[in-house]
Design a protein around this nucleic acid. Structure first.
Length: 461
RNA sequence: GAGAUAUUAGCUCAGUUGGUUAGAGCGUCGGAUUGUGGUUCCGAAGGUCGUGGGUUCGACCCCCAUAUGUCUCCCCA
């Protein structure tokens, strides 16, 4: 049979895994350094946990798992009735009661609700796991992909927002991605905008349209707003606000004037000011990324209630590589009221593409093996094995070519694997109780003792 | 869920208005070189032209279906 993998999934070859691990490890170090704790949840959740949390479109994209035992003859009537329900577009636990994780946020909320008595709040957690969506695959869009979330739950302080901004800046600084913009806005400002536009109940309509500004331009947004029944006067107000220019202080001041008397808008402005104030005192001097206030930033997700952020780089033509925001009452759905959270997410796959395109991955990711011992066979094999054992005990990643095949084949193997050193120990070396070490980068080869080998290789790392 | 487009050797791609044995580069393998890789030279292997039907004397080429990739819409990371 012809081997294949399901649509929208990928194999990760060794070099790709190393590159991905480099990203994961970089982020993990930053999270841990800021006191965040790791969390993992199951690949599958009960379907009832996920359904109704992501909207109608989301429900359709959840991968559902067929129950086992559907061929049980005794339950046949029940199962057939269940299938009729499925055919009419409704789910039933008689046919499917589990589903693959769709994102990391809802399982996180479920986790908090289940373990609220054991958790020390405020709870800071990070989570890096795959999620699955039955979407149609496109470039940079997969049915299995990794999310990386970092949240603080159980505190309403804007210090948390500032800390997360620091995490973004620190992460992209460490990954050396140039021209980073962290765009900042507040759902409260958008709510004020809806009031200003005489459409306080159409916040969602306005945000969905506004979210497309980058993609379809103002004319496109205007058309959408018209279609959604926003008045001409309202559209004019929205346009005016998206056109505010200047530095962050200027933007906030101008907005404050326009939002005169609109309480929720003013609160949004104050929150951003306070967050930026905290950020300025927390940030490191060498971070290059910019924080840019952008009143057109909307983000589609409806559960955001306060500050929202999105990260882009001007260095590569690509969508956002991260996003997040404040959400009040995320756990309310699971019966835990009054817990506010704020979180950010990293788009791992897109970050991978950016680093690949800009060639920002470290050079030494190809192999961890430092030295290959050439196999000369016969009497030399036991000597080679004792050297192998010695080097490993000294903490030097080493390999012994397992077959005594032709010399150039073994050399080609080392070259292809990107192994920096080759150790030759044949009859001559064994007679002198020495070894020949060849450096593949310089081509230089020297007869030396094992101690010197350890020193030379250690100095090279 | 809707539309468009592509699929030829391990990889990247040529090709034929429908006519015997489908080509190249790179890679792989063998040799020059059984103790010197990355450079060079010589040689070889490798394809039922994505899959299944149909039209035709004859299909890699035309038609239909299907799988997978890519693009647009929808939605999203």
């Amino acid at each position: 049979m012809k081997p294949s993998i399901p649509q929208g999934t990928r194999d990760f070859s060794p070099i790709e895994v190393r590159k991905r691990q480099y990203i994961f490890q970089t982020l993990k170090n930053i999270f841990e350094c800021s006191g965040f704790q790791p969390l993992e949840t199951p690949a599958m959740e009960n379907l009832s946990t996920l359904m109704g949390k992501y909207g109608d479109e989301g429900d359709r994209l959840i991968f559902k798992i067929l129950n086992n035992g559907l061929d049980n003859i005794e339950k046949r009537a029940k199962i057939e009735a269940g299938f009729l329900q499925i055919l009419s577009g409704k789910n039933t636990s008689d046919i499917t009661e589990r589903a693959l994780r769709y994102d990391l946020t809802i399982p996180f909320a479920r986790y908090i609700a289940m373990h609220q008595n054991d958790i020390a709040f405020p709870f800071r957690r990070y989570q890096m796991q795959p999620v699955w969506r039955a979407d149609r695959p496109q470039r940079g869009r997969y049915r299995e992909f990794w999310q990386c979330d970092c949240d603080v739950v159980g505190s309403t302080s804007l210090l948390n927002e500032a800390e997360l901004l620091c995490i973004y800046q620190n992460a992209f600084h460490k990954l050396q991605i140039p021209d980073i913009s962290v765009k900042l806005n507040s759902r409260k400002i958008l709510a004020g905008l809806a009031e200003l536009a005489d459409a306080p109940n159409q916040l969602t309509d306005i945000t969905v349209a506004l979210d497309k500004l980058d993609k379809i331009g103002w004319d496109g947004v205007k058309r959408e707003l018209e279609q959604r029944g926003i008045s001409e006067k309202g559209i004019l107000a929205i346009e005016k606000i998206t056109q505010i220019e200047g530095n962050n202080d200027t933007k906030l001041r101008e907005l404050s004037v326009i939002m005169q008397g609109i309480e929720i808008g003013q609160r949004g402005i104050e929150e951003i000011q306070q967050t930026l104030h905290y950020y300025e005192t927390l940030k490191q001097e060498n971070w290059q990324g910019q924080i840019v206030i952008d009143f057109s930033l909307a983000r589609g997700l409806n559960y955001y209630t306060g500050i929202i952020v999105e990260v882009t780089t001007g260095a590569v033509k690509m969508g956002s590589i991260g996003g997040g925001g404040r959400y009040d009452d995320l756990t309310g759905l699971f019966g835990v009221k009054g817990l506010s959270g704020v979180g950010i997410s990293f788009g791992i796959d897109r970050i991978f593409d950016v680093l690949d395109e800009l060639q920002l991955f470290p050079q030494n990711l190809t192999s961890t093996t430092q030295v290959l011992i050439i196999n000369f066979g016969g009497e030399n094999e036991p000597y080679a094995l004792s050297v192998l054992q010695y080097l490993r005990a000294k903490g030097i990643a080493s390999e012994f070519y397992p077959d005594a095949v032709k010399f150039d084949k073994q050399m080609k193997y080392a070259n292809k694997r990107g192994i920096p050193f080759v150790l030759l120990l044949g009859d001559d070396e064994r007679a002198n109780q020495k070894v020949s070490l060849k450096n593949f980068n310089t081509g230089e080869q020297k007869l030396m003792s094992l101690n010197e080998v350890v020193e030379t290789i250690s100095a090279n790392v």
